[in-house]
Every structure is written in structure tokens, then in C-alpha cells.
Design a protein around this nucleic acid. Sequence first.
DNA 1: TCTGGGGTCCTAGGACCC
DNA 2: TCTGGGGTCCTAGGACCC
Length: 398
Amino acid sequence: MKNVQRQILHIDVNNAFLSWTAIDRLAQGEKIDIREIEAVIGGDESKRSGIVLAKSMKAKRKGVCTGETLYQARLKCPNLQVFKGDYQSYKKHSDKLYNLLLKYTDKIERFSIDECFLDMTEYLRNDSLINKAYEINKRVKNELGFTVNIGVAHNKLLAKMASDFTKPDRVHSLFEEEIPNKMWVLPVSELFMLGKKTLPKLYSMGIKTIGDLAKKDKTEIIKKFGKHGLLMWEYSNGIDNSSVNYIKEKPKGVGNSVTLPQDIYNIEKIEEVLLALTEQVTYRLRSYNMYANVVNVQLRTNEFKDFSHQKRLIRPTSSTKYIYKLAKELLSQMYKKGTAIRLVGIRLDGLIDKGEMQLSLFDNDNNVKQENLDKVIDELKNKYGYKKITRAGKINFE
DNA sequence: TCTGGGGTCCTAGGACCC
DNA sequence: TCTGGGGTCCTAGGACCC
């Protein structure tokens, strides 16, 4: 097969959570568009989750950053208004965007709730990729009421870097010949997949810009950073052969965690939280029609130290009872008496499709029983809403 | 009134087997 | 009176993304 040049777009919703909340509020008759004031979408400080999830342009101009505490944000921007997020609504807006994009190509990778990669290679005919990008940008604005940045390039990495140039409501190209002028001049911290742990190491090597990294000897970078080094070096040179993953993948793991309103010191209380989380996460697992092989319990202390313990299940299962039993064992192994716990989490890994599960010789009636019990409870949850239905305490879990 | 929650992938060391 | 090495699985922790 001939090696054709790929035509890739990266679509990035500007201030997604804030824009979408703005639209919802306007639709409910509110007069003020929160995109036009100093505003953020934030967590709940009374639940100790007070961080900035999205910011308006005006808040950004005051120096407000995503991820920082609302307290810090207010220091920079005293008139800051904080609004709650609504994940259900965000999913709807995201789906609308996806459905609009489907009119341009069926090769769409949903990279996150507010980002998509489009492979347009087979759908361009006489039009240029850039023109298509402008057309999409305009249609999203007119038909959906929010703005997007679009990156135009010949691979995903360059498209992603391009969509991150000046914002909002812009189309940027980043073709190979534009790399020196548009990408190499940027600070190396701007490179995708280069995080805050790697940054100081690069600085100490005299690497300040993406161009500096690109011109470094590849083997030297690999020697120092291993596999991640190769990735960084290739990215800095605009190399990325990964394809647009338009077939929805099954999850590899699924987890739920919660930051507690107050630190807890006693294992019985942690167990209660763990049980609620186990019910949540196994419910999600069953809704995928999958079984888990591995259970992982995570704790965070009040000093922000993270611990985790994991163990394989004897056999794959989606049973709340068996998974909670193992989770409880893991917890008792890892919890040091008296430690102040801030966060509790559970993850299920090594997921497999129900159909893939080999019939085990040790399989017995108890499994079937548990599965039927879980099924009944799930159906009740689906019918009457998730929050109403929980098991009667710990009685079933001895 | 400090610091979310959901993911993926990688690394390194130990156990165990041949 | 010397102490292989390759492969795989398991676990804990860490880096990164949105």
C-alpha cells in the first residue's frame, strides 16, 4: 500500500466545562454569560475538593490556572465567581460535538470529553484540510453555541500541539516545514507528555525550548530517560506515527475514589467508605459486562502521601461480595493504625469480557448466586436511581 | 478555606521456573 | 568453595494526560 500523507485534525473545546455551563445557564434564563466575567468551574471547598476545573478568559488574564486551589485563584482574582460543574450535561454537549463531527469523517478518536482527533485522509476530495477546519470551527460555533480550537497537521502530535496555540476560537496549522518557527521556539514545558518531574532534569541539561530538545543527541536522551526519552525526543522533532483510534476501546481498568470531608483515623470507618466505593465500581464494571482480575486499594494520608496495595483475585469476577472481601484484606494489610486518611480509592484492573472468562472447574453455585444478587440490585438501581439503593449494611459481607 | 477524580503506561525488584 | 541467565508473573509506585 502506498504511504499517503495523513490529514489530521485535533478539535479542542475552549474552556469546555465553563463554556458548557454558560450555555446551560443561558438556556435556563440566566441573564449573565459566565464566559464574559471573571468566573471558574470549581470543586466544593467544604468537601475539601476546592480546585479550579475550568476558567473564563477574563479569569485567565488575572492569572487563574486550572488545577490550583480556589483559595489561590481568589488571591489573584478577588471578584472571582465560582460555579459548580455538571458532568451529565457535559457528556451531552460532548456527544453533540461528536455527532456533528461524524458528518465529516467516521474516523474520530474521542481523546477526552472535550477533545477529538479526526482522520480526514479519505474525506478531503477537492477541499484543503485547512478549509475543512475553518468550516468545522464555524459550524460548531453556529450550531452548538461554543467555540473550539482546531489543530491542522499530518499527525496527531502536531495537530494537538497546534490546537494549543493562541486561543480561543482559532484554527492553526503545524505542518512539517512550520516546526522550526512555530514549535521549536516554544518553551520545552509546552511539549505534550512532558510533565513537571521531567522539566527540571531537562533544564539542568541546558534544554529550555522544544528546539533545544529536538537538536540533542537522541541516544543521550534515551540513555537518561529510557522509553519516555525516546517519546519526548520524537515528539520534539514532530515524529508521531500513531493512528487515530476511532474504534471505542474497552476500558482496561475502572476505579472510584473519594476525598473525605474530614480525615479519618479508624479502620472501621475506612471500611465503610471502601464498601460504598466497591458497590460503585463493581456496578460500573457490570454495566460494561466485564470481570476484573485484580483489585487495587489506594489510600492518601493527610500529608498527601499515597499508598496502594493490589492482589489478583482467585478467579475473575464482578461480584461485589468477593471484590469487597479482597479489598478489605488489602486494606488491613496496608493500614497503619492511627494514620490520618484523606482519600480512599479502589481500582479494578485486568478487565476481561464476560464471554472471555474460561469456565473454571472451581466454579460453583455460590458464584451464580452472587451474580444473580448483584443483577437484582443493579436493576433496582437502574430503575429507581443509584443513590437510593445500597445493601443493608455490612451484614452480607462477613 | 490548600491541594479532584478518572484514566494509561512504564519501571524496578522479587519470586519462581527451566 | 561456587554462585548462569533468560523468561514470566506479580506488586508498588510513579509519571503523565484531561
